[in-house]
Design a protein around this nucleic acid. Structure first.
Lengths: 121, 121
DNA sequence: GTCGTGTTTCGATAACTGTCTATCCAAGGA
DNA sequence: TCCTTGGATAGACAGTTATCGAAACACGAC
């Protein structure tokens, strides 16, 4: 895409939390992602985008789902974008957002608890 | 340590973010969990506890891993406890913490991205 | 070019968060 | 009993964040 995501998202650690202690660096990177999701509005935005048909949604769809002003929605989208969770692309009048599945997958993998049966390769 | 976890953690939604849009309620519950993890220190604490031999760690081990004062560590542990991610138990002189694997598993499941094979149109 | 719709940025304010010091409680040993 | 150690609580401070209204910007239609 363009110039978003110069950052932590892709370098975030992979080993599950419960297998090895996080380094301070990994913890900082991960915490930035979690912080981006630590807001009900942003979680719903993320979910709306991720679950939208075609894998993308325009801001006009998103603002209708909330009782918040446009600027506020834009702010939350910016936070999500800065964290690398989503990307935005302008096509004509509207801006379309889509999620970065790899980042979600990575977070999901990190949170997998230590199951006695699970042997990681 | 009486009864922590009277709350959201166990009711938090299960369907992956990317499959169905979160309701406002689900988003609030999930955001509380993510907020608890949206801090490098708390992430490392969680990781230290989860990855510790026996599945539990005492506070004395945890404080040594940081350059923070005892009360600060205690504060972060309290946040994690209040969110339902960990439980603490006093045994004699020391307090031992362990994670709630179900909560981690649930979060992990929620973050699983939409699988390319499962197309919802 | 101008106009209108949609989106972002700016500036301000209120609320929240992380950290500290000081203090207090619980358990164990002299 | 008193004293020491491990851990939690209380209160305060600085830095950050969420939200808004107003203004500015980008694009398409005309």
């Amino acid at each position: 895409m363009s110039k978003q995501l110069p950052l932590a998202a892709m370098d975030a650690c992979c080993a599950p939390l419960a297998r090895d202690p996080l380094t301070a660096e990994q913890a900082v990177e991960l915490s930035q992602l979690f912080k981006a999701m630590a807001d009900p509005v942003r979680l719903r935005l993320l979910s709306l985008i991720a679950s939208h048909a075609g894998g993308e949604a325009c801001v006009c769809d998103l603002t209708d789902a909330f009782e918040l002003t446009g600027p506020t929605i834009s702010h939350h989208l910016k936070v999500l974008r800065a964290s690398g969770l989503i990307t935005g692309e302008r096509r004509g009048t509207w801006v379309y957002y889509r999620v970065h599945p790899e980042v979600l997958a990575r977070l999901s993998a990190v949170l997998v608890p230590a199951e006695p049966g699970v042997v990681t390769t």
